[in-house]
Amino acid sequence: MQLLLTGVLFMAFVMVISKRVSALIHGFRAQSFFLFLTALYIAMLNNNAEIYIVAGLLFAIKVVAIPYILSRIVRRIKVEEGAGLFINPTLSVFIAVLLTYLSYLFTGRVMPDAGRSQSAAVIISLSVTLIGLFLMMSRMKAVSQIIGLLVMENGLFLIAMASAGGMPFFVEIAVFFDIFVCVVILGMFVYRINKLFTHINVSKLQELKG
């Protein structure tokens, strides 16, 4: 369990320092895979059929489908490889470490009665969420913003699993569905942005002001 969680956090750090969009997508796939293993582990521990189904969906959507869609976009629009870093990697890692420490403080304050392994899980998932937010803010390419959003969702999925044993079954399913549709729609807009602006650097979208 601890090993798998470390894997999830480690992949978040890998994404923070990756400079290319394709590396980001691989990082996301690896992180989702660790998440899938975690869910599978929890399902086996509780012998719970619903969590097995959730884990299966997680694998199908986040490990297979979404990375496939994203890499297709990258190939089709031949985006130049840079992920549009706003902050250099060293500073990024420093910020990510700071965010992890913040999550540690937050968890200690809000859930002081949680057990040792549970609070460790919450700390890790919260850091992953915050790092996802940081990824969104520090990268200027449209595709990397989508990945940041997905990393945030990954973190939240883990929080729900770790703190409360997963959300109610049908909510979890509906959330997956929403995320999937969201990525598809965002992907369609990336094509449109690319076609209209001939780039996908979202920091240069500045027509609307005031």
Partner: peptide, 15 residues
């Protein structure tokens, strides 16, 4: 309308 400003607005809206 699928022009520059409306796509920009939609992108910001979803994100």
């Amino acid at each position: 309308h699928n022009n520059k400003s409306s796509v920009e607005a939609a992108w910001k809206y979803i994100i």
